[in-house]
Amino acid sequence: MPKVAILTDSNSGITQSEGREMGIRVIPMPFRINGVDYFEDINLTQEEFYAKLKEGGDISTSQPSPQDVTDTWDELLKEYDQVVYIPMSSGLSSSCQTAIMLADDYDGKVEVVNNQRISVTQRASIRDAMLLAKKGLNAKEIKDKLEADKFHSSIYITLDTLYYLKKGGRITPAAAAIGTLLKIKPVLQIQGEKLDEFAKARTIAQAKTMMINAVKNDREGRVSENGKYKTVLQIAHSDNLGAAKVFAGELKDVFPDVDDIEINALSLSVSCHIGPGALAVAVSRVETE
């Protein structure tokens, strides 16, 4: 049974200390704010980030440097036989593509998972990977299993404001579709590789109902296939913990069979595009113990 290391990036929302506790490694995502480079959770906290975002700072994200990626792999391979690397969705960043290319030189010792997850659904994948490694699967088998579940998750996010989405200009299809004059709470969906508009609401209350209905449909339908597979529900937010807690309570009323709904902060790479005050709910198919 090979000894497999699990590696992800900070888009998963897993902090450095959490990673240590879980026994996995987390590559920090680099940010450039007003011309200065930062690394998520290394020399940039959530609080600092939101303060700079609200000040209107010029924030850009980039992928981890290839050097950092291969250095981490090399380091892990001293202790492990194989590495499974789960980077953020290839639909939202080219870091996955870069990693796949870099892994070519590692003779199958490093497997890069292209399962198009981000934030809390990426986090769910990490847990699956850990479970599968524990069950004795090798890196390639783990990668194949995770990729087979690529479309068995979705995230719905309600934005408090369109401001950041418009400003970033990066998520153009969504931004273009909702480029309107009115005050609207857009509900976005991340499923597979794209972040796109799902619906629009006039109020948060209405948006929450839309997200709950959508997640309920997905959960019963393609994610669990009528209860055949195990699922998890997660809540994510950007600097909006109070609302997230209230939302968790509301979700528990709708899904009495779900015992635990985890709340996590959205990764900063997502937050910098959608701004603070966002609220999200995700459903993912997960491995059983």
Binding site: I184, F198, A201, R202, Q206, M210, A214
Partner: peptide
Amino acid sequence: GISALISFVPE
């Protein structure tokens, strides 16, 4: 009418 149109979901 505005609110109804806003809440249309293409899918």
